[in-house]
């Protein structure tokens, strides 16, 4: 118990003094998870839209697979990307292993199923007749899809928030692909993991609190965007 209280003090201390290392790790954490959320959104939402609006054979099966991938273990995705970008891998020449870019790539892949799957859910939740309504009022195909997306914006925002949550909180990819290199790929979750194993429980608790605060702030910002 005393470690938790000490952790809270330490967290306050770290934040108030703007501890440089804490600041650096925090900013990197935000940078990596926001970037991967952004990329996954840019690719995943249109992809989800495409799957939702097109009818094709095996659509149901595909949606099932996407939903299964929501719960794929992060280390498994890490391992897959590791094999891809390690020296001997297809993308080995890009030297992405143990870099923030590699981590972004890996986290993008990790949360992609959430963005795609939840986009499909969100769009299929919009009443079918909205499409007719938009078209009948003169919308072209692009405008119709945009209208449906707008109707589904709350659910779509939910998908983005969920994807971001999975990205910022995961540790498997960050360790396996990032390597927890101090000053280069170290993020909050990997630091917590490291400090806990070293016995610095209070510091871990402090970092945990900071992680939760970041998540809170980002969610608040997204909520404000959503209301607009």
């Amino acid at each position: 118990m005393s470690e938790i209280i000490e952790g809270i003090y330490q967290a306050i201390n770290l934040i108030l003094t703007l501890n440089p290392e804490m600041l650096e790790i925090t900013l990197r954490t935000i940078y990596i998870s926001l970037s991967s959320t952004l990329f996954a959104t840019i690719i995943g939402v249109p992809l989800g839209g495409l799957i939702n609006f097109k009818t094709f054979k095996g659509k149901r099966g595909l949606v099932n697979i996407i939903q299964t991938l929501y719960s794929v273990p992060t280390v498994l995705v890490g391992l897959f990307v590791f094999l891809l970008i390690s020296r001997a891998g297809i993308l080995g020449e890009l030297n992405l292993l143990f870099t923030p870019t590699g981590m972004i790539l890996c986290q993008t892949i990790l949360i992609m199923p959430i963005l795609v799957g939840f986009t499909i859910n969100a769009l299929s939740g919009v009443e079918k007749n909205i499409e007719d309504l938009a078209m009948s009022l003169g919308a072209n195909q692009f405008q119709t899809i945009y209208t449906i997306m707008k109707e589904a914006k709350y659910a779509l925002m939910g998908a983005v928030i969920l994807g971001f949550g999975r990205a910022i909180s995961e540790v498997g990819v960050a360790l396996l692909i990032g390597g927890n290199i101090r000053g280069f790929t170290r993020v909050i979750t990997t630091t917590i993991s490291l400090e806990t194993s070293r016995g610095n429980i209070a510091l871990s608790v402090a970092l945990g609190i900071i992680l939760m605060l970041i998540a809170l702030v980002i969610n608040l910002i997204l909520n404000i965007i959503q209301e607009k």
Binding site: E127, N129, D132, L133, S136, L137, T147, K150
Partner: peptide, 12 residues
């Protein structure tokens, strides 16, 4: 053309 549907829908 313009059509008013029997069960009118609204955009958000």
């Amino acid at each position: 053309m313009g059509m008013v549907f029997q069960k009118p829908l609204t955009f958000k």
